[in-house]
């Protein structure tokens, strides 16, 4: 996995955010959580996973060294 994959996942997540397919759905999951809200809560977890992948595979090591070298 490289930077391009991380960027591709970012774009996919952006489109997944526009969940027009749940717009008129007020069904509950787990008996209390409206499906539109549950979906977006899961989306937040997906964002955290993407952050993890970005750090693992697209971390700016060079930039870090560049700043630390000039203390």
């Amino acid at each position: 996995m490289g930077k391009a994959t991380v960027w591709a996942l970012f774009v996919i997540l952006f489109f997944l955010h526009q969940d027009f397919w749940w717009w008129e759905d007020s069904n509950l999951i787990f008996g209390f959580m409206p499906i539109g809200l549950a979906y977006h809560a899961a989306f937040s977890i997906a964002c955290a996973c993407l952050g993890f992948l970005a750090i693992r595979y697209a971390w700016p090591h060079d930039l870090e060294k560049f700043a630390d070298d000039h203390d």
Binding site: A41, F43, S44, C47, A48, A54, F66, A67
Partner: peptide, 26 residues
């Protein structure tokens, strides 16, 4: 929630990554 919170999770994290770290370095 979707209006502000979940999109912020995506956009804020990307900004910390792309802009925050770079500005910190400069």
């Amino acid at each position: 929630y979707g209006l502000m919170a979940s999109i912020s999770g995506l956009v804020h994290a990307a900004i910390f990554f792309l802009i925050g770290i770079r500005l910190w370095a400069f």
